[in-house]
């Protein structure tokens, strides 16, 4: 009797525990994912030419880091109008930290935004920070062509040739016209009696 009661007691207890945990999970889902927040910071480069290290830490409501989630880093830029320019994506470590390296393309204040898209367990969030850059990537320039000195003068040489051609055309035209006009016939129209009409083809036939 005692054994039976003990066996059923364990069974009931196990069922009750399962029911309670199911209820707890249901309550948790009903409450939604855990809120998160992001802190952003930047470390200046250690030497000239090296990038800034921008770090973000994402923590849950209880202050513990959220690991293995992707964070998207962007900066505010004025490129064909104000917009967010993506500068990279990194996955958080066990402490909820993620880092990217970034060499600014201009000097001055940089507004950094880090976004977390959210998961089933953790809510989406974003954080912002700023830093003032004293260094910047040199703007891209095409390698100088070895023929640059030569080709820069080429259009002028061609222009000289074009002008020479136009002068030659003008010389041929004006010279010929002047040569003919120097010996020109009287400006009067020929008398009707002097005109020799073209024969009519039908008459010729």
């Amino acid at each position: 009797m005692f054994d039976l009661a003990r066996r059923w007691g364990w069974t009931v207890a196990l069922a009750a525990a399962l029911a309670l945990s199911a209820l707890a999970a249901q309550a948790a889902v009903a409450a939604g994912p855990t809120p998160t927040r992001i802190q952003v910071g930047a470390d200046p480069p250690q030497a000239d030419g090296q990038p800034y290290v921008i770090e973000a830490r994402i923590v849950a409501a209880d202050g513990r880091g959220v690991n293995s989630v992707p964070l998207d880093f962007s900066i505010a830029a004025d490129f064909f109008g104000p917009r967010q320019l993506s500068i990279g994506r990194a996955t958080t470590d066990g402490q909820g930290r993620a880092q990217i390296s970034y060499l600014p393309s201009w000097q001055g204040r940089h507004e950094v935004t880090v976004k977390f898209a959210g998961t089933a367990a953790f809510a989406a969030s974003q954080g912002a920070g700023s830093f003032v850059s004293a260094v910047a990537l040199a703007p891209h320039r095409d390698a100088r062509s070895p023929l640059a000195d030569f080709s820069s003068g080429l259009p002028y040489a061609v222009a000289v040739i074009v002008v020479a051609v136009w002068l030659t055309i003008a010389f041929a035209l004006v010279g010929t016209v002047r040569g003919i006009l120097a010996d020109r016939a009287p400006a009067t129209a020929p008398a009707a009696a002097d005109l020799v009409p073209i024969p009519d083809p039908s008459e010729e036939a």
Binding site: T168, A172, I180, A182, R184
Partner: peptide, 23 residues
């Protein structure tokens, strides 16, 4: 242009046409 066919005019024309043919 008041062409009469004089030698002077023929020479001028031949020169002009020659230059243009070369050019």
């Amino acid at each position: 242009l008041g062409w009469t066919g004089s030698d002077h005019q023929r020479q001028a024309l031949a020169l002009g046409v020659g230059i243009m043919a070369v050019l």
